[in-house]
Simulated scan of single mutants.
Amino acid sequence: MTTTLPLAAVVLAGGASRRMGRDKATLVFDGPDGPTTMVERVVSIVTARCAPVFVIAAPGQALPDLPAQIVRDEVRGVGPLLATGRGLREAAEAGLEHAFVCAVDMPELTTDLIETLTGPAERLGADVVLPWDGRDHYLAGIYRTALFTTVAELVAAGERSMRALVDSVDTQRIVMPEQRALTNVNTAADLELEAPPRLG
């Protein structure tokens, strides 16, 4: 069911990508419309449902031109919690109360998944709504943008994990089956598995 809840998007693109061994944001993905970078693919998906879209990038990280606002992390390699807080703050300052937060390595993400989470976010009034398929998907959830203040407090206390945030606020988990939309690309082999068959 489609909702009318206004929703920003925060795409975390500045991770160290240690398992991949290179920047995942500019990794080329063989998508349904031909080759594209991972960040272009994910931004194109979230833009269909969310506005504005914020891409959180590392200092000095090269990115293609995107229909999104690029926000630079102040420091590199400190984990997703700080970057999430930065994105939520930008979304809050833009006047949005909710944001869909996702990782850049989810080329099979769908607007249907976003809508599945948006309904409960609108009805339940929770701080965070996450998909759960046997594990929490912290970087595929809807967050209240006001949580940027909670993130700042947690980071000041030395926390770096998304679990620290989720465990400290009202979080609702939406049970769903394992699906491609929630798949993260962590290695070159994962990327090959994700690539759809080419026709012709």
Rank of each mutant, 00 (worst) to 15 (best):
F29Q: 06
S44F: 05
L12V: 06
Y143D: 03
A156I: 06
A68G: 10
Q179H: 09
T183Q: 14
I70R: 12
R89N: 06
T110Y: 00
A126Y: 11
Q179M: 13
A157C: 03
L130W: 01
A94P: 08
L124P: 02
R160S: 12
A9D: 10
K24D: 11
S168H: 12
R19M: 10
A195K: 15
D33I: 06
L27A: 13
A146N: 13
R163E: 08
G125N: 04
E93I: 03
L12Y: 10
K24W: 07
T150Q: 13
G85L: 09
V71L: 15
D105A: 04
D170P: 05
T4H: 11
C102D: 12
L182H: 01
E40Y: 03
D65R: 09
L5W: 07
P107W: 05
R86S: 09
A58T: 07
E40F: 07
D136A: 09
S17E: 10
D23N: 15
A94I: 03
V166E: 07
R19E: 14
F148P: 01
D127A: 15
T187G: 00
A99C: 02
L124R: 13
F29N: 00
V46C: 10
V175N: 09
A140K: 02
E108S: 11
T110G: 03
A152W: 01
L147M: 01
V128A: 02
V55N: 09
S17P: 01
V128L: 07
A140H: 02
Q172S: 09
D73L: 13
V104P: 01
G79R: 11
P59T: 09
